[in-house]
Write a protein that binds this DNA or RNA. Structure first.
Length: 259
DNA sequence: TGCCATGTTAATGC
DNA sequence: TGCATTAACATGGC
């Protein structure tokens, strides 16, 4: 559910309420959210920072403990929400507030790390257009698959991949390595501008995404292809087509997006 | 009832 | 070997 703009919005909404606060107690109802791994005792620990890492959240505690929160499809971090049957973790704070991790489908997880997270590709904002183009050149996979790959680039999910490809005028099934340098750099520009706009609108709320205070995002009103199958392309009027690529619904304009 | 869903990963097929 | 597809995870909405 949450992709980079949603994770960024969650981090920004939680940060002022969490940084400097101490954890008095932690609970993990059902334990599944821990994926069989033991949770260290974090009572007494203080939040140092709340950061976005790709589409995940990184909660830094003093004493060099990190909690990497994978939101999966339906995960949410909520401050002072009422616990329900889908509450998978709860942290009681010295401020009297309570941070909950709510996750209906249970694809999300909490991961306690002793060091920096590894294994994911660069952040879109920290990569130059030239470096992005160079990485693309090495990939034989289709653009849709390449951009969804978190090892290639961290933070894009199904919505923003479709939106970025439309804005760049590129077909989702085009081979990454076949793009000219100019088109590859234009794709990077489209991604950065798209994510910047989406963050400014506090992310996309399609079904149930909300930030840490329970507020919905507004960027769904700016989607040009995602969820618009059969509706006219906002650029040329041609009906938006939906196909399935890597088992993900893929939306594009057959007239504007060339292969 | 059947299909769909903002994610990730293992298994299988070509 | 490399890439594409399928299945699986768990649950709710339409």
């Amino acid at each position: 559910m949450p992709e980079l703009p949603e994770a960024e919005t969650i981090a920004r909404s939680l940060s002022p309420h969490l940084v400097g606060r101490r954890i008095e107690a932690a609970a993990y109802p059902g334990q599944r959210v821990l994926r069989g791994k033991p949770a260290p005792d974090i009572s007494g620990r203080q939040f140092v920072s709340i950061e976005r890492f790709g589409k995940q959240l990184l909660l830094r505690l003093d004493g060099d403990t990190l909690i990497l929160v994978k939101l999966g499809m339906t995960g949410a971090l909520l401050l002072d929400a009422a616990p329900d049957a889908y509450t998978r973790a709860g942290f009681t704070l010295d401020s009297g507030s309570r941070l909950l991790f709510r996750d209906t489908r249970q694809f999300g997880s909490l991961n306690f790390l002793a060091g920096e997270p590894t294994g994911l590709g660069p952040d879109p904002f920290e990569l130059s257009a030239a470096a992005f183009a160079q990485r693309l050149r090495a990939k034989q996979t289709r653009l849709k698959v390449t951009l969804l790959n978190q090892q290639f680039l961290r933070g894009l999910g199904n919505i923003y991949v479709d939106e970025a490809l439309h804005r760049a005028g590129l077909h989702p099934l085009a081979r990454a390595s076949r793009l000219t340098a100019g088109r590859a750099e234009a794709l990077h520009t489209a991604i950065v501008e798209l994510l910047t706009h989406a963050i400014a609108e506090r992310g996309s709320s399609i079904s149930d995404y909300v930030d840490g205070s329970g507020a919905r995002g507004n960027f769904q009103n700016f989607h040009r292809v995602y969820g618009r199958e059969g509706q006219p392309c906002l650029h040329c009027g041609e009906p938006i087509v939906r196909l399935v690529v890597a088992q993900r619904g893929t939306h594009y304009c057959p007239a504007c997006q060339t292969r």
